[in-house]
Design a protein around this nucleic acid. Structure first.
Lengths: 199, 199
DNA sequence: AAGATTTACCTAACGATGTTAGCAAAGGTA
DNA sequence: TACCTTTGCTAACATCGTTAGGTAAATCTT
């Protein structure tokens, strides 16, 4: 009997609908004004049904952050297929990371806890290191003939990730008075250049 | 009559007391659990008196973040007096920034909106650029014989700030699985080295 | 088809939050 | 003493996340 399957399908639909609606609300009004009641309103159900599908609000945010990591991962995989040469690939990864952040600021903020009650970080997720793994691979490709130790490579990975994340955070949080996005992009490009030169 | 002055003094005392108590609570339980009622409880007054001294909760957070910037600024000024040689001074500034962040994580999180409802950033504060100004001066000192344009120097400032802030953010938010603080410190030192070498 | 049972869903509430209106008491002024 | 300003409080409002408990519909059992 397909009746059970239909129910499962409906349940899944509800779940994805909740996530979709939550993301939509966030895009419109930001994380700070997202509430369970608004989600319930948007899906046209009462509040408690949301708790049939998610343990609590944090679980919803967690799931959305996972979506963010998955999306980023897909983009990085595309780079991998497109660019075989390690240096070229590394530059592409950096650019992809940058573009991802500013095309999906909601995701980026959630993924790295920028300007919101921490929620997602803290729990170790494999997806968390997706970017690290990708640039790590590219860096190893560039550096493999040189006699760098594994530890040194690990340092390099962290260093590059840090510049990118730091730059993005500062711009996204408006910590700097430099608001010219072209200029900020240039700072990133030069930082990546300097980084590669220093490998 | 000193009676008016006493009242002013009392009012100021109350104000600073509120801030001190708020900071204390944050150090004990983190930003997320700070509430007006807890502050009122700690200062042994009822809730509305707090609103006689601060417009709202955000104003309290804002003032505390200013304290953070002022404290950081004082430390950087100390470096300036201690180290005349630009490169040495720049290294000291980086180290000071790093140490400040991990000795006062509450301040750092508030100042740059890490893991909390954004609150402070967004409003342009002169104190915000204190660190930028300090490392800017040192970098100009190092680079002044070379024919770098002002724009290039500005880029360099942003690049260095970004590595530091990125590294600190990643560690503080536990985005990385590398939790060894000595190791993280090494990554910073090497990044600063590479940065200076690349000036 | 009728009864039993599980499921789906809602109303209403609890406790905590930031914020404010309005009142009472204390203190200074005339 | 009468008045007024300051100072502080109680109590409430709206919103939040979360949950207990009930109802009616959908499903399963006989």
């Amino acid at each position: 009997m397909g009746i059970l399957e239909r129910k499962i399908r409906q349940k899944e639909n509800m779940r994805t609908n909740i996530l979709a609606v939550a993301l939509q609300l966030v895009k419109e009004e930001g994380w700070q004004s997202l509430s369970i009641r608004k989600i319930a309103d948007a899906i046209e159900y009462s509040v408690p049904v949301i708790y049939d599908h998610f343990e609590n609000k944090e679980a919803i945010l967690f799931e959305l952050s996972m979506d963010g990591f998955r999306l980023l991962d897909r983009l990085l995989e595309k780079d991998k297929r497109k660019y075989a040469e390690p240096e070229e690939r590394l530059r592409a990864h950096a650019e992809t990371y940058w573009n991802f952040a500013f095309k999906n600021p909601e995701y980026y903020q959630l993924m790295y806890g920028l300007g919101m009650p921490c929620s997602s970080p803290g729990k170790a997720k494999p997806e968390f290191n997706s970017f690290r793994d990708h640039i790590g691979e590219a860096i190893e490709g560039i550096v493999k003939e040189k006699k760098n130790s594994e530890e040194e490579t690990c340092f390099k990975i962290h260093a590059l990730w840090s510049v990118l994340h730091g730059l993005i955070s500062i711009v996204m949080m408006r910590c700097s008075d430099i608001d010219d996005s072209q200029m900020n992009k240039k700072v990133m490009d030069e930082s990546v250049d300097a980084f590669i030169k220093n490998l």
